[in-house]
Nucleic acid binder design. Sequence first.
DNA 1: TTTATTAATCGCAATATTACGATAGAAAAA
DNA 2: TTTTTCTATCGTAATATTGCGATTAATAAA
Lengths: 108, 108
Amino acid sequence: MGLTKTEIFSDQQNRIADLAKAFAHPARVAILQVLIAKKACVCGDLVDELPLAQPTVSQHLKELKRIGIIKGEIDPPRVCYCINETVWEEARQTFGTLLDSFVPATCC
Amino acid sequence: MGLTKTEIFSDQQNRIADLAKAFAHPARVAILQVLIAKKACVCGDLVDELPLAQPTVSQHLKELKRIGIIKGEIDPPRVCYCINETVWEEARQTFGTLLDSFVPATCC
DNA sequence: TTTATTAATCGCAATATTACGATAGAAAAA
DNA sequence: TTTTTCTATCGTAATATTGCGATTAATAAA
């Protein structure tokens, strides 16, 4: 089917999954790392930094914007992208809480 | 194409992406949460806990095993799944480091 | 106005993912 | 041995994702 049954999971579970998608592709990881490294926001130099075609980069940027973890400021003819501090913090909290919720115990 | 060009990204970037995939689907988030909640490892009750068919759950478990974040001990006819402490810690470190690497600055 | 520059979008092709019914396999229980 | 129980795998269908060439849109520059 390829259709995730989002309606049968909690909002929290769906949000975690969405936030994780921001990091679930190496190109998006690379994009985020570049945005972090260049403290100021990088514009279309992203295309130069990455071994991907411009439309492909643009598509990943769109996905990251959909998730909310980056934002783009239009400064024609360029667009300036940067990390969305609020959502980044949400991700930090979310994954922090989730990853800290496991307490090792004797198991299998 | 649908084919991620893994070879053009670093091992680190590919590993981050893979670890993120463990959390990038609400069903897998749910599975991991169940495994954490039942301190001991849960067997096939996962199917009862989740609103998904048994083959679907099995497929998600396979993906989680591929990533390494869970392990399954065969105890016929059951299989006992649990969090792989080592890989979970790797994820904690990985996402911790990544998410802490962003320092807010004046931007767009 | 014409020409660059930059980035989004369209359209397509290829592959991946998600889901599940049906089936198979493996071992315990009857 | 037959049956039951549990889980993996197969096969299939539907949708999603990834990637890119070509095009478009928007603005600045010439």
